[in-house]
Nucleic acid binder design. Structure first.
Lengths: 122, 122
DNA sequence: ATTATTACTATACAAAAGGATACTAGTGTA
DNA sequence: TACACTAGTATCCTTTTGTATAGTAATAAT
């Protein structure tokens, strides 16, 4: 039986190893070619499998299925099956996933700034 | 000749495609197994190749060399060669890279919160 | 009976990322 | 002469990630 310690922001920030581990947690949740597009597609409304597929035109069903499973396992999306004919399955972001929006905004901001500052080096 | 348009935070945020692209810019800079550990290792002081290698015990010189090149190309680290014998090479984070610290803090914070909220689902 | 629909799965393959191990150049020391 | 040091490279191999293409189950409409 493992003892799992809950770590605080302060503790994690003070220790480089914990820091890297915790940041990696976040990174892993959104890593992979299609996670971000999928999250983006679900940011404003819940959607069905085929809707997402139409939304992200180049994704294959295999990848969409796999990435959605990953996201579900990581507590990022909720999957709901409706017993219609043919069945419909709805995917929606969890609250936690929605709160990732703020982080993504920060990344967006830094990305734009960084592009500026590296362009101006020429 | 390509016209390159500089995009604003507002513009990027309003357009899902631009949003995903810009966030991906940031993601790409820190993606790969060793980027974060390397950045972490350089956060507080400049270091030499062998120092970093000692710091991140499991990295091979091949990977360290490759990742440092990537980081340099992306404007994240500055490489300085000193003509000593044997030569010494120093790596340090650029200002832009240091400013990534804030983003990483956000990611750390979210990662910890998300872990809490998914644990409490059981 | 054939076709369409939704939400996938199966198989095979290609490409990218990463690891293991050995090696190099240039110089200094024992 | 032999060895050690720094900062890497070179070669080969394994693992992970992603792609292409075809197929499935359950049901309903034509």
């Amino acid at each position: 039986m493992e003892v799992e310690k809950t770590i605080s922001f302060k503790e994690a920030k003070a220790c480089p190893v914990q820091f890297v581990l915790a940041v990696n947690d976040t990174l892993n949740v959104i890593s992979g070619k299609w996670k971000l597009p999928i999250i983006g597609s679900l940011l404003f409304e819940k959607k069905r499998f085929s809707d997402i597929q139409r939304n992200i035109s180049k994704i294959t069903p295999r990848m969409l299925s796999k990435e959605l499973k990953d996201l579900e396992m990581n507590g990022m999306v909720k999957r709901t099956v409706y017993d219609t004919t043919p069945i419909t399955v709805e995917y929606e972001l969890t609250e936690s996933a929605k709160s990732l929006g703020d982080v993504l905004d920060k990344m967006l901001e830094w990305g734009l700034q960084h592009r500026q500052s590296t362009l101006s080096q020429n």
